[in-house]
Design a binder for these strands. Structure first.
Lengths: 232, 232
DNA sequence: ACCTGAACACCGTTCAAGT
DNA sequence: ACCTGAACACCGTTCAAGT
């Protein structure tokens, strides 16, 4: 990793490259064009260089996208209020901050792997774990519960957000939902009894509420275990 | 979609192509080489044709991979026991069947998008919804709870299974876990208090249990709502 | 140390031509 | 209707050469 920070610290040309400049530009392109639209040639042109120059700062495209996704996640962690009253409330706020960040950068959703490569994914898991320890859960369950929550946050966010990426940045979410709702209506009620009965909910549903519904279900389950059956 | 079913029904050459033959071969290659390893040229060679021939049966690579993922999901649905005693038990069995199928075909995990394109993803959601209706939950919550469970199943499975895909089919999961555990141990306890305390759990953990832990948390939360606080 | 840009290997996709 | 295979456009990556 080159030690460049900010712009041209030691006095090189004003537009000298650096890892963060490249990653920032990559994020902008990813937001606009999606993962397939990000090209080393295009990125190089934006930065007034040749493709080869980028490889001095970044190993390959995989690493570049990983760095970009990591930064998105890092921004989310920074935005999430760090200490809060109850552990449950804090977990909820943290989860929503991550969801919102991924919602703004849909391409990143499929790249935040829970207990793995991204530095900020580790930070996320650690913060979740620290909060779980505060719930009064028996210590031997801390790990499994913390990872379950972490998996839920990143995994379900990705599921909810990914469809937009697939269609390309072109189609809006509303259009996409309307379109799927139409497909649901054409289904045979004999084969899809539930879905055909439920089209209205699909149309009116909200992604963010969707996310929090499951999250609350999960946290409710956690409470059931933490302090089993408090008096009514 | 050509009407070919099985092998050469009307009497063409014995090795005539068909959508399902192509998809089957694609699945085999995906299992062996991952999504990047699947190439139209390579696939064509396996089937003794040129790349162009495949395009008569399949629109493009995206569709091919989607068809392959859909088949994996379809197999999982067929394997899951269709009717079971309690709704909770049936939901659990269904979820595990999907997890196991994706575990056998890791590349498919990132392609099962919950309320969306794949035909069998719709079937999955419908089966979940039908089971949710049996839980005694108020009707206006059926949709959100069903989708929450659906999102959990596909999203968390993807999270748990995806890391293997990233590394390539080369590294085994055990090696991967051991490697991450080592990284955790090198972390600064001041920055990562929880993780450094928890390395042992990571080493001994089991992916499938991980999946069911969160699932049970979710279903527990569901029970809390379905029949709130039954007498102790 | 850092950048340039041509070149290599490879891939998805198309299409005129065949049967 | 279905297959063939050459060709096109494009991409990730490398590398000898520059400053």
């Amino acid at each position: 990793m080159p030690r460049t920070r900010g712009r041209a610290p030691t006095g090189g040309r004003a537009d000298a490259l650096s890892r963060e400049i490249i990653v920032d530009a990559a994020i902008a392109l990813l937001d606009e064009l999606g993962e397939r639209g990000l090209t080393f040639r295009l990125l190089a042109k934006q930065l007034n260089t040749g493709p080869g120059a980028l490889y001095w700062h970044v190993t390959n495209k995989d690493e570049l996208v990983a760095l970009a996704a990591d930064q998105v996640l890092g921004d989310a962690l920074a935005a999430a209020p760090h200490s809060e009253e109850g552990a449950g409330t804090a977990l909820r706020a943290l989860a929503i901050a991550v969801f919102d960040a991924l919602d703004r950068h849909p391409w990143a959703a499929s790249h935040v792997d829970a207990p793995a490569t991204l530095a900020n994914a580790l930070r996320l898991l650690d913060r979740i774990g620290t909060l779980v320890e505060r719930t009064g859960l028996p210590a031997e369950r801390h790990f499994e519960v913390a990872t379950a929550i972490s998996y839920y946050i990143t995994g379900v966010s990705a599921q909810i957000i990914a469809p937009c990426t697939t269609v390309g940045a072109s189609t809006s979410r509303d259009a996409f939902l309307a379109q799927t709702a139409e497909r649901w209506e054409e289904l045979d009620p004999a084969d899809y009894p539930f879905l055909t009965r439920t089209t209205a909910d699909l149309r009116s549903h909200n992604d963010r509420d969707q996310f929090t519904t499951g999250l609350d279900l999960l946290l409710d389950g956690l409470n059931t275990i933490a302090d089993p059956r408090p008096p009514a």
